[in-house]
Design a protein around this nucleic acid. Structure first.
Lengths: 221, 221
DNA sequence: GCTTCAGTCATACGTTCGTTTGAATCATAC
DNA sequence: GTATGATTCAAACGAACGTATGACTGAAGC
């Protein structure tokens, strides 16, 4: 009985879900609307009806999950800072607040689904406008977490922070997007993708890397 | 006088050069053969004549630069190990030998051109067969450098190494592929892309991260 | 000087792409 | 029950895709 009725919300969400999964596995350019509507079992024209274009669909896919993730990030950082109002929080805790929301299976009732892997792809996805959407969505996040990191790590210059963030985001994105390559690099020794262990490892790796970015500033040559 | 004669080598290389640049900027799927032949100023059919297909062209683009890079990597590592035959080389030196060839402007007479950026993209590129080409090209490298890293870092388990390599490759790939995002993350403070500084930063970041992967191995619950 | 053959060229093939159209279908309100 | 507005549907659009074809070009071999 329930399956006979398919509301608009069903259709839009089914499109978004199918698109998210296919984009994460194949990338934006290599995924056709016919694949998406086929997997979502909706009519081809539904994409251009509910969204206006393929490009707008991509933006919708990103924004649906990116907003809640960023809210959660800020909430975690707020909690950290109000926990010890006087002193700066430990660097590991700041980094943890940045990465944790991406690893959470459920997020304020929002299933992440295939979004983490898609998020990993986005950062290296070609196309100026994808980068623009990403930059717009991350603007405030970079500012807040950058300030927190510099408070947690005295001596870290703005320039050092930029490099550290670049590498950290790369490490995260690569893990999230990584399919077979993890198993390959570790030669089968790594355990199956345990989210908690992965988050812990990532936090430790990037925190140590960030610390190594602060230098005594001897003139290099 | 020189421009009137265009040999086969000219044509094949012009295709490879144009393809490398376009692939690195747009990705494989989003780049059409007409774009490539247009930029290379050769006939459309030349691609399917000199290479058999678009897919084979991609493989050719990758292998042209990947081989020399890996040879150079092994040469640098050999030099390191024969330098101090008794003791293990410092971790930073091992990591340096792994990354340095990608950053070198000239490499055994081979111009790297747009390949570094393409290399950054490849790791997150969708498509099973791209991953297969990559894995095949990197097999020996992972083995040799993994062993060297474990000798440089006693206590680093195979599992730890797998995670560390995953994050390290991600950091490298993200920097190489990164276009505007570096300037964005650093809020305009970072200097222009200075290859030497970038390599130094990357080595410091990933070495510190790798060191943080070795743990006392208390059962994590 | 004729043959040979690797290379280049314009052109077209069949397919798939994103998008559009207009009719059919449905729930809701009166 | 009939009108209304939103949604779904099959079908088609023109454009762009990767690939294939066959004629043309030019230097090398004899």
């Amino acid at each position: 009985m329930t399956e006979a009725v398919e509301t608009v919300r069903d259709t839009k969400d089914r499109i978004l879900d199918a698109a998210e999964g296919l984009f994460s596995r194949q990338g934006f350019a290599a995924t056709s609307l016919r694949q998406i509507t086929g997997e979502a079992r909706v009519n081809l024209a539904a994409v251009n009806y509910h969204f206006q274009s393929k490009e707008a669909l991509i933006v919708a896919v990103i924004q649906r999950k990116m907003g809640p993730i960023n809210e959660r990030r800020l909430a975690l950082l707020d909690a950290l800072e109000s926990d010890l109002p006087e002193q700066a929080p430990e660097l590991e805790r700041v980094v943890w607040a940045l990465f944790r929301p991406v690893f959470e299976a459920r997020l304020l009732g929002v299933e992440l689904g295939n979004f983490p892997r898609l998020m990993g792809r986005m950062f290296t996805e070609p196309g100026d406008w994808v980068q623009r959407v990403l930059g717009q969505a991350l603007g405030g996040i970079v500012e807040r977490f950058g300030a927190a990191a510099r408070r947690a790590l005295p001596g870290l210059r703005q320039e050092d922070l930029g490099w550290g963030m670049l590498f950290s985001v790369g490490a995260m994105a690569h893990y999230l997007a990584g399919g077979e390559i993890l198993r390959f690099l570790s030669r089968g020794q790594s355990n199956e993708l345990d989210q908690e262990e992965a988050l812990d490892r990532l936090v430790r790796f990037t925190s140590a890397g960030l610390r190594a970015m602060v230098t005594g500033r001897e003139m290099s040559a």
